[in-house]
Amino acid sequence: MNVSIIDYGTGNIKSISRIFKKFENNINIVNEPKEIKNSTHLVLPGVGAFPKAMELLNKKNFIPEIKEHVLKGKPLLGICLGMQLLFSSSNEIRKTAGLDLIKGEVIKLPENETKSKKFKIPNVGWHQITINKININKSIYSDLSKAKFYFVHSYYCKTDDENCNLFHIKFNKSKICVIAQKDNIIGTQFHPEKSGENGFRLIKKFIRNK
């Protein structure tokens, strides 16, 4: 096994690599696209703004290798902004094309309709995730339903295909997708590396593929 975590100049790579190291010794933080080739598992982290992240991935020429990894049927995990990058496009700051591995767009979280401050943007904190009924038992991740995870984000992924919308949370009366999955590709809006024991459960599933 060889888990590669892409380091393209954004995000807290250290915490991510350390949670993986609890399960697997062969963890590589990769700075060069060619280093992805040998990996069995690929992780795309990310913190910050969508356009800047895409610019960095493009500049470092990571995109062809990421797509090749996926085409070979090997698992890919996008975390937080890394999940959003998997989608077709985002309208954060300006409309920007994403990796288009999962169809859909990244849009701003729905604002409060009333003066209540029950939900704040950015959405920071823990949420219990709920499985999308049509996808019950279809995924190795299905049994994470009702588990709590840690979020920090202002935008979220709106999937075109409901079959890719695996888990959601309720935010200002809307259900927003927080785990998207398409075959070997999975994205989590939350940070498994900051979500205690539930984060460990998710990472273990990703690594063991069961």
């Binding site: 915490s15 350390r18 840690y150 940070h191 590396e193 900051k194 979500s195 984060g199």
Partner: peptide
């Protein structure tokens, strides 16, 4: 902390 504490 990054080694032992997996919350923010």
């Amino acid at each position: 902390s990054t080694e032992n504490i997996f919350v923010p």
